[in-house]
Design a protein around this nucleic acid. Structure first.
Lengths: 210, 210
DNA sequence: AGATGTGAATGGGTTCACAGCA
DNA sequence: TGCTGTGAACCCATTCACATCT
């Protein structure tokens, strides 16, 4: 498999979302690259390049066939069936993410959650069985979970990450305001809200172009 | 002012967080670029380049003086005093962000929130006065708010964004799963959780390096 | 006429590598 | 010796531009 860049798959995932809306809500059957581009925050050349990468080709006359393109993207992004995700840290943010996420339809589903607070374990939270963090490793291993979300305080984020990785997790979405140190081959996305908001505020002040 | 890239200020903000911890918790007075780098997920050359950009210089003997560097970063990132942020959409996610955010100390503070649900307006939520979305424009104008967070459902995100921008907002942090269309000169950061998790899941499966 | 697919050019961010310095 | 500061080289993503197709 030829490696594909971070930004590129993010765009492709965005195309899919746009295509689903065009298909379902507007009942369209075809799109041109420039239409897909303007709904996705990309350029039309970028769209064409990206679709080239996944090997889907359109026609100059009608553009891209939406259903077919959706299938191609689906094969490319998630060839598997439903995949279970774990979430560690059932605070306000964690609970919000669970609710938000499992309301949407997607091949991904948060199926297991962990916390240290006894009030929050051995229960069912928004349809997910919750466990104590001390049982993290065996549960993750048993359920063969490969992707996890961290919403614990920054002090415990690194140790949680370490355990997740020991249990076989390969991708981590981290909301704790700390940069995780992970071995080669593990993918981490940091989404600390404070850093992000500070950045947005900076650009709001320093009125740049794009 | 010479324009500075998105990624670069994100790194600089991260450096600040690391420096604050080194200063407060560990009582260190100096750092070398490679230490700062490994705690921030950057390379040492990158750190040196970035600090060059903000005009701070260290010494080959001791590295960078932490307090001084913090001051320089502070001047660079937020020259102003406290800044008020608005948040639109007081669902689970919105409330989690308010609580999470206003617990931390930062020059930024969420001071005003909006919703359409009558149960949630004319009240004080986690210390923030809440208003109905119909009053969005006058309130934002009156409070001179320049940065806002959108946590409404995707169907209303674009119209909320339009109103925010009409009211003078220059930076938007968008959690709705839709790509906002905004005029030139407005900064938008999309942080849709579903897209992000789909991406992380993709890279968890396609075990790439880095 | 107007869109796709794609080699070629462009641009910008990252790394290299080394002079200069304590 | 080991680090900083920085020109130069490198690399990769985006854009340009155009032949091609309907």
């Amino acid at each position: 498999m030829n490696k594909i860049s971070d930004k590129k798959i993010e765009r492709i995932i965005t195309y899919r979302r746009v295509l689903l809306r065009l298909d379902k809500q507007l009942g369209k059957t075809h799109v041109f690259s420039h239409q897909l581009a303007s709904s996705s925050g990309a350029s039309s050349a970028q769209v064409r390049r990206d679709l080239m990468e996944i090997g889907y080709t359109g026609s100059p006359a009608h553009g891209y066939e939406i259903r077919g393109l959706l299938d191609s993207i689906g094969e490319f992004i998630d060839p598997d069936q439903k995949e279970g995700i774990a979430l560690v840290g059932v605070g306000n943010l964690g609970r919000a993410i669970i609710d938000y996420f499992n309301g949407q339809s997607s091949k991904l589903e948060i199926v297991t959650v962990f916390d240290v607070n006894p009030d929050k374990i051995e229960r069912v939270i928004s349809g997910c069985r919750s466990y104590h963090v001390k049982d993290l490793k065996p549960v993750i291993i048993e359920k063969k979970i490969k992707t996890a979300v961290i919403t614990v305080p920054s002090g415990s984020a690194q140790s949680v990450a370490d355990e997740l990785i020991e249990a076989g997790v390969k991708g981590i979405l981290n909301y704790a305001p700390i940069t995780l140190t992970v071995p080669h081959g593990i993918y981490v996305e940091n989404r600390d809200m404070i850093t992000t908001l500070e950045k947005v505020s900076y650009f709001a002040k320093n009125n740049t172009n794009k």
